[in-house]
Simulated scan of single mutants.
Amino acid sequence: MTIELDPVMSWLVIIGLVIVLGAAFLIGRRTGVRRALKTARRYAHATNLSDAEADPATRYRAALIVNPTKTDVRRLSSTAEAICRFEGWSPPLVTETTPEDTGEGAAVRALDEGVDVVIAAGGDGTVRAVASALAGTSTPMGIVPLGTGNLLARNVEVVLDKTEWALRIALWGRNREIDVGTAKIAEDGDTHVFTVMTGLGFDAAVMADTNADLKSRLGWLAYVEAGSRKLAGKPSHVKVTFDDEYRILARVRSVLGGNCGKLQGGIQLLPQAVIDDGMLDVLIVSPKNLGQWVGVLASVLGRKASNGLHTDIRKCQKVVIEARDQLDIQLDGDPVGRSSYLEMAVMPSALTIRVPTVEQRKQIRAEAWPV
């Protein structure tokens, strides 16, 4: 028996197929063919099936990229696997960073595997490396903060001292799109990604001169010790150009640009910085002697919004700093060498990260940790 479709029904079928194929093409371009097929399988999966009945191929999967210098990788992997099993996820794809690949290459491979979230477990350097691969994609990044500063985690209120909760936030937290900064340390050089702050001068010299052993024993207080040894340096002559229009000439100790400004101890270095406003906040620090550093400290602790004592903050989308001398440069706290050139710009809403939901925040404040 032959079943005939009337012309209207035939056209509806054809249009439906075109829509499905078009959606698959767009998703495939964005996240890879494997991820597109996985997404289609997931939405086709019946919602009334239990985790035990679900096809493992349709379950969510996380990638966990771990800095082995910050934690016991085997223990963290076991914890992550147990939490994923409890939450109905497939076992995580676990990769360790190396001196040659600090996380970016591992994150790219995780994207090729079509994972649903990439979790950076380490310090700010690991987070920055993973973010470099995820920026511009729709795959979210989770954070298990294990470093000294953990600045991005602090600014988006990811829990710092409970690995289990950080993992759960990475799996089931709320997606939030944030801005990403880009930096070039040579006019024709490579472009680097940063998520928190990049600086030239005093702040970068402190990062470069911080004793690693002291840092492991004292944490962020090691930066204070290094900073005390750098206060007596001389200002540097720089030209700072904002958005290719406004230029200033100044003698400065440091120029720093950032998407967010919360440091350890609740200090707000960039008090008006917003992580998703599409702008960079640029801080110029210009004390001429040790006495004027007291004014700088008063401005920072007093959360001065724009012009403080020997400080100046401006908002822009791009800034270029040209120095007379070679100065230290840091990206999210990592020293990257010396240069007389630093260009920073912002990529609005370029990175999706997992942050606590309202319910998770309540449980965090109540210290209602899962067992």
Rank of each mutant, 00 (worst) to 15 (best):
Asn150Leu: 10
Asn150Gln: 14
Asn150Phe: 09
Leu151Cys: 14
Leu151Ser: 14
Ala153Thr: 14
Arg154Val: 10
Arg154Gly: 10
Arg154Met: 12
Arg154Lys: 15
Arg154Phe: 06
Asn155Thr: 13
Glu157Pro: 00
Glu157His: 13
Glu157Gln: 13
Val159Arg: 12
Thr163Ile: 11
Thr163Met: 04
Glu164Met: 07
Glu164Ala: 12
Glu164Trp: 06
Glu164His: 09
Trp165Val: 08
Ala166Gln: 05
Leu167Asp: 02
Arg168Phe: 09
Ile169Glu: 06
Ala170Gly: 08
Leu171Phe: 15
Leu171His: 09
Trp172Ile: 03
Trp172Cys: 05
Arg174Asp: 09
Asn175Asp: 15
Asn175Pro: 00
Asn175Ile: 02
Arg176Ala: 09
Arg176Asn: 04
Glu177Ala: 14
Ile178Leu: 07
Ile178His: 06
Val180Met: 06
Val180Gln: 03
Gly181Ala: 07
Thr182Gln: 14
Thr182Tyr: 07
Ala183Pro: 03
Ala183Thr: 06
Ala183His: 04
Ala183Gly: 00
Lys184Ile: 09
Lys184Gln: 15
Ile185Phe: 02
Ala186Pro: 08
Ala186Asn: 06
Glu187Leu: 01
Asp188Gly: 01
Gly189Met: 02
Gly189Ile: 06
Gly189Gln: 01
Asp190Lys: 11
Thr191His: 00
His192Tyr: 14
His192Asn: 07
His192Thr: 02
Val193Gln: 00
Val193Pro: 00
Phe194Tyr: 13
Phe194Asp: 10
Thr195Asn: 12
Thr195His: 07
Thr195Glu: 07
Thr198Val: 04
Gly199Arg: 05
Leu200Trp: 04
Asp203Asn: 12
Asp203Leu: 11
Ala204Glu: 07
Ala205Ser: 15
Ala205Asp: 13
Ala205Ile: 03
Val206Cys: 11
Met207Glu: 13
Ala208Val: 01
Asp209Met: 10
Thr210Asn: 12
Ala212Met: 09
Ala212Gln: 10
Ala212Leu: 12
Lys215Arg: 13
Lys215Ile: 00
Lys215Asn: 06
Lys215Met: 11
Arg217Asp: 08
Arg217Pro: 00
Leu218Ala: 13
Leu221Gln: 11
Ala222Ser: 15
Ala222Gln: 06
Ala222His: 08
Tyr223Lys: 07
Val224Ala: 15
Val224Cys: 05
Glu225Asn: 08
Glu225Gln: 11
Gly227Glu: 13
Gly227Thr: 11
Arg229Ser: 09
Arg229His: 15
Arg229Ile: 04
Lys230Gln: 14
Lys230Cys: 03
Leu231Trp: 05
Leu231Met: 10
Leu231Phe: 09
Leu231Cys: 02
Leu231Asn: 09
Ala232Pro: 00
Ala232Asp: 12
Gly233Gln: 15
Pro235His: 05
Pro235Ala: 02
Pro235Leu: 01
Ser236Glu: 13
His237Asn: 01
Val240Cys: 02
Phe242Thr: 01
Phe242Lys: 04
Glu245Pro: 00
Glu245Met: 02
Tyr246Arg: 05
Ile248Met: 13
Leu249Met: 01
Ala250Leu: 07
Ala250Met: 11
Arg253Glu: 06
Ser254Trp: 01
Ser254Ala: 03
Val255Arg: 07
Leu256Trp: 01
Gly258Arg: 01
Asn259Leu: 07
Cys260Pro: 02
Gly261Lys: 03
Gln264Asn: 12
Gln264Arg: 07
Gln264Met: 08
Gln264Pro: 05
